[in-house]
Amino acid sequence: MSKFEFPEAIKSRPTYGTLEARPGKAHLFVADAEGAEAIIDLAKADSGLMAKSHVIYIPKDTGDKFVSQLQDLGINQLYVGPSFEAAQTRLQRSLADAHMGLQVYLCGTEGLMGQAQRDAMAAGIPHTAIQTEHRGSVARRMQCVHCKGITEDVMTDPFVCSHCGLNLFVRDHYSRRLAAFQGVCIDAEDPGNVPPSAELYS
């Protein structure tokens, strides 16, 4: 099972549910890696849904593991792509043409869901109407509050900003607009005194 129980945290930290089929004529899924399993589970629960769905899937390091299962679900429009960046214009194009009543389902890693949610919100869907289900890695997409650079797939706390090189600790404070958690300098008051890095949730 690829689901992870996140510990209770502050109110800006996103929480995730379990996808359920909602009424509507059109259904858009964006998933990465083990997020495919959430789609497969939902397709089992509601066999008619996939014929009305557009699925954008980025396998990341799961490679071909889930692709053939997805192909067998009878999805109306299935795209398998190499990265979110590569898929993003396709996503934005779909949203630009969409109508009220479109249901958006996001599943997989926090970074993927956050970025897709940002595009869906920009298209006019309130974030509370967008379903999310976390699957797979617990890595975080982090913004350095100092240089504003984004570091993807952060697995340890503290970590080194991939842009400015400061030692940052990982906060639970989360921005939907940036689709990122906040990283703040850990040794500002005692330069060089950086505790050893530990794996998140270890």
Partner: peptide, 22 residues
């Protein structure tokens, strides 16, 4: 606190880091 980070948040979210008060 950072406006650039908190812009777009609701009342509970931008106050999320404050201890005890919630």
């Amino acid at each position: 606190w950072s406006l650039d980070f908190d812009i777009g948040m609701n009342f509970f979210e931008w106050h999320a880091p404050v201890p005890l008060a919630h």
